[in-house]
Simulated scan of single mutants.
Amino acid sequence: MTTTVAVVDYGMGNLRSVAKAIEHVMPTATLLVTSDPVDVAKADRVVVPGQGAMPDCMRELEARGLRAAVIRAATEKPWLGICIGLQMLFDYSEEGDVAGLGICAGRVVRFPHEQMALPDGTRLKVPHMGWNEVQQQRLHPLWNGIADGARFYFVHSYYVVPDDFGITIGQTRYGIPFTSAVARDNIFAVQFHPEKSAQAGLRLLTNFMNWKP
């Protein structure tokens, strides 16, 4: 049976790159880039990408009637969040003082200016942009075949702070250590962009498409 994947389109994601990457790793899948909540409900797997500002993302998700469908999908089927798709899982974001979906307890905060420096004192720029290592915090099927410390591509100024650090599955250092991936039940979400992360990113997407949580 063909797997149906819904890539949620709420007007804020790098949808073409994400869709092309999924098509590359799983050409037999039926891929729907969709803003229709019915498609999200019917899909076997759901991917929630996102770029831009959190307030805009949450407003557009609501305006398209996708909020309830995305929350429900996060309770019942393999669900992959990318960038803002990770951040929106949490209760609250400092960016725009906006509420998230509240699926995971915690908040989204900006990199602290005073701590954005290397040990030698060199200042680090915000946003955090470029390749960086992800330290795997425990085994998970989506890490299969990906070396601990593999490099992924990041573009962000805010990061998640879970109330329960037990859901942190990946950690990265940029001035400070921060949660760069979380996992709980059927949810896996990452701050980096697997669709822009060469072989490691494609392997993560392959693992997601074969994941049976």
Rank of each mutant, 00 (worst) to 15 (best):
Y159N: 03
C104T: 06
D97Q: 14
Q115K: 14
L139V: 05
V134Q: 02
I103C: 08
W131K: 05
A147T: 09
N132H: 07
L142E: 05
E133I: 00
R110D: 05
P119A: 10
H113M: 00
R107I: 07
R110Y: 01
N132G: 13
Q136G: 01
R107Q: 14
A150H: 00
G130N: 07
P112T: 06
E133P: 00
S157A: 15
D120R: 09
A117P: 01
E95I: 11
G145M: 08
A150Q: 03
N132M: 05
F152W: 04
G100K: 05
H128S: 02
V98E: 13
H156C: 04
N132F: 01
A147I: 00
F111H: 10
P119F: 10
V126M: 01
G145P: 03
E133C: 11
G100W: 05
A99M: 07
G121R: 05
G100H: 05
Y159D: 02
G130Q: 12
E133T: 14
Q135A: 13
N132R: 04
Y92P: 00
R107S: 15
L142I: 10
E95K: 10
A117G: 02
V160C: 15
A150D: 07
D148S: 14
I103T: 11
H113A: 14
F152N: 07
Q136N: 02
G145D: 09
G149Y: 06
H128D: 03
L118F: 02
V134Y: 02
D148W: 02
D163V: 13
K125P: 00
L142V: 12
E94N: 01
Q136L: 15
V108P: 08
E95R: 04
R110T: 07
L124D: 08
W143T: 01
I146D: 02
W143L: 05
P141R: 13
F111G: 04
R138K: 12
E114G: 08
H140Y: 11
S157Y: 07
G100E: 07
Q136T: 04
A105K: 15
L101N: 03
A117M: 13
Y92N: 06
R151S: 09
G106Q: 12
L118T: 13
E94A: 14
G145H: 08
Y92Q: 12
V160M: 07
K125W: 01
N144T: 13
E133S: 15
V155N: 08
A105D: 14
V161C: 13
C104E: 09
A150T: 07
R138W: 07
F152Q: 08
R123L: 15
H128C: 07
A99H: 13
I103V: 15
P141W: 11
F152P: 03
